[in-house]
Lab assay of single mutants.
Amino acid sequence: DWEDIVRFLRKLFELGEEVVIGDWHNHHREEIKRLIEWLEKHF
């Protein structure tokens, strides 16, 4: 279910905002944000 995936990604992203998950999070933050925005537009 796409909504569950979007919710999971958003939760992960919000957690990442508070607890910076090292370089991985910083590197992928923009991609995650773009992916969430893309999914919201399409689903």
Rank of each mutant, 00 (worst) to 15 (best):
L15F: 08
I5N: 00
K33Q: 07
L39E: 00
K33H: 04
V19G: 14
L12C: 07
E37M: 06
W2K: 01
I5W: 11
D4T: 11
L9W: 03
D4V: 13
H28G: 07
G16K: 09
H28Q: 07
R10W: 14
H28P: 09
F13G: 01
E14N: 04
N26P: 14
L9G: 00
V19R: 03
H28D: 09
D1K: 08
E17P: 11
D4A: 13
L15G: 02
E14H: 04
V20K: 12
E30F: 08
R29D: 04
E31L: 15
G22Q: 05
L35M: 12
R29L: 14
E3W: 13
H28V: 15
E17Q: 11
F13W: 11
F13S: 01
E18P: 07
L15V: 09
E37Q: 07
I21W: 13
E37W: 12
G16S: 11
R10L: 13
G16R: 06
W38L: 05
F43G: 03
E3R: 11
K41G: 12
N26C: 15
E37T: 07
V6W: 15
E30D: 10
D23C: 14
I21N: 11
R29Q: 09
I5Q: 01
R34F: 08
G22A: 03
R29S: 14
E14F: 06
H42T: 04
E31G: 07
V6S: 02
E31S: 09
V20C: 04
L12P: 00
H42K: 11
W24L: 08
L9S: 00
V20S: 07
V6I: 13
W2Y: 03
D23E: 12
E18W: 13
R29K: 12
H27W: 08
F43A: 11
E17R: 10
L15P: 02
E3N: 09
V20Y: 09
R10F: 11
V19I: 11
I32N: 00
E31P: 03
H28T: 11
E30H: 08
E3D: 12
G16L: 15
L12A: 02
K41N: 04
W2H: 01
I5R: 00
D23T: 02
H42N: 05
W38H: 02
I36Q: 02
R7F: 15
W24N: 10
G16I: 15
I36W: 09
I32A: 02
V6D: 03
L35T: 02
F8T: 04
I36V: 13
L15R: 06
E30R: 06
I32D: 00
R34Q: 13
G22E: 08
H28Y: 15
F8I: 10
E40M: 14
I32F: 12
D1F: 13
W2Q: 01
L12N: 00
R10S: 10
E3T: 10
H27R: 04
W38I: 03
K41V: 12
R10E: 05
L39D: 00
H25W: 15
L35W: 05
L35V: 05
E40Y: 15
L12K: 01
F8A: 07
H42Y: 14
H27Y: 08
H42A: 06
R7C: 05
H42M: 15
D1A: 07
F8R: 02
L12G: 00
W24F: 09
L15N: 03
R10P: 00
K33M: 11
K41P: 02
G16H: 13
E18S: 14
E18L: 14
F13P: 00
H27F: 14
D1V: 11
R34N: 11
V6M: 07
D23W: 09
K33W: 13
I21K: 15
E18G: 12
E31M: 13
H27A: 11
E14Q: 13
E3K: 09
E3S: 11
D1P: 13
I5K: 02
V20P: 08
H27K: 08
E30I: 06
V20E: 07
W2I: 07
R10V: 13
R7I: 07
R34K: 11
E18V: 07
L12D: 00
E40Q: 13
D4K: 15
F43Y: 06
L39I: 12
E3F: 11
R34C: 06
F43M: 10
W2P: 01
V19H: 10
V6L: 13
E14D: 05
L12H: 02
E37S: 06
F8N: 02
H25E: 06
K33V: 07
E3M: 14
V20W: 12
W38G: 01
L12M: 02
G16M: 15
R34Y: 10
L39P: 00
V6T: 04
W24D: 09
V19S: 10
R29G: 07
E31K: 11
H25D: 09
E31D: 10
W38A: 05
H25A: 10
F13A: 03
L15C: 13
K41E: 08
G22Y: 02
R10Y: 13
W2F: 03
L9E: 00
K11W: 15
R10D: 04
E3I: 08
R7K: 13
E31R: 06
K11D: 09
R29I: 15
R7D: 08
I32C: 13
E17D: 06
E17N: 13
D4W: 15
R7M: 02
H25G: 11
I21G: 11
D1N: 10
H42P: 03
L39W: 09
G16F: 15
G16A: 14
L35G: 00
L9I: 08
E31W: 14
I32E: 00
D23M: 07
N26T: 13
W38T: 02
K33R: 11
L9A: 01
E40F: 15
L35D: 00
V6A: 10
D4I: 14
L9F: 07
I5S: 00
H25I: 14
W38N: 01
I21P: 09
E3H: 05
L39Q: 00
L12R: 00
E30Y: 03
G22V: 07
I32S: 01
I21E: 12
E37A: 06
K11S: 09
E40I: 15
R7E: 13
E18T: 08
R10A: 10
F8S: 01
E30V: 04
H28A: 14
E17L: 15
V20M: 12
I36H: 04
V20Q: 07
I36S: 01
R34G: 03
E37H: 06
L9Y: 02
G22K: 06
H42F: 13
V19Q: 06
G22N: 10
K11L: 11
H25C: 15
I21Q: 10
V19P: 06
E14Y: 06
D4Q: 11
E18A: 14
H25N: 12
E17V: 14
H28R: 05
W24I: 08
L9C: 02
I5Y: 03
D23R: 01
I21T: 09
K41D: 06
K41W: 09
N26K: 14
V19F: 02
F8W: 12
R7N: 11
W2N: 01
E14A: 10
G16N: 07
L35Q: 00
W2C: 09
K33Y: 07
E14C: 11
E17H: 10
R10T: 10
K11I: 11
F43C: 13
H27D: 09
I5D: 00
W2E: 01
D23F: 13
E37I: 09
H28M: 14
E3L: 08
L39G: 01
I5E: 00
L12V: 06
K41L: 12
D1W: 15
H27P: 11
E17G: 10
D1L: 15
F8D: 02
H27E: 09
W2S: 01
R29N: 06
L39V: 08
K33D: 04
D23N: 08
F13Q: 03
H27G: 05
R34S: 10
E17S: 11
I36R: 01
R29P: 10
L9N: 00
D1M: 12
L12I: 08
H27N: 13
E30M: 13
E30G: 04
R7S: 06
E18F: 09
N26A: 11
H25R: 05
E14T: 03
W24M: 11
H25M: 15
K33S: 04
H27M: 13
H27L: 11
L9H: 00
E31H: 09
L39H: 01
W38K: 03
E18M: 14
V6G: 03
E3C: 12
W24V: 08
F43T: 05
E17T: 14
L39S: 00
E18D: 10
D4Y: 14
F43E: 02
E18K: 14
E3G: 09
D1H: 09
N26V: 06
E18C: 03
H27V: 09
D4N: 11
K11T: 08
L39A: 03
E17Y: 15
L9V: 05
K33L: 06
H28F: 15
I5H: 00
W24Q: 10
R29F: 10
K11R: 12
L35K: 00
F13I: 03
E18Y: 08
G22L: 05
H42L: 12
L39Y: 07
E17I: 15
V6N: 03
E14L: 08
E30L: 07
E14V: 04
L12Y: 05
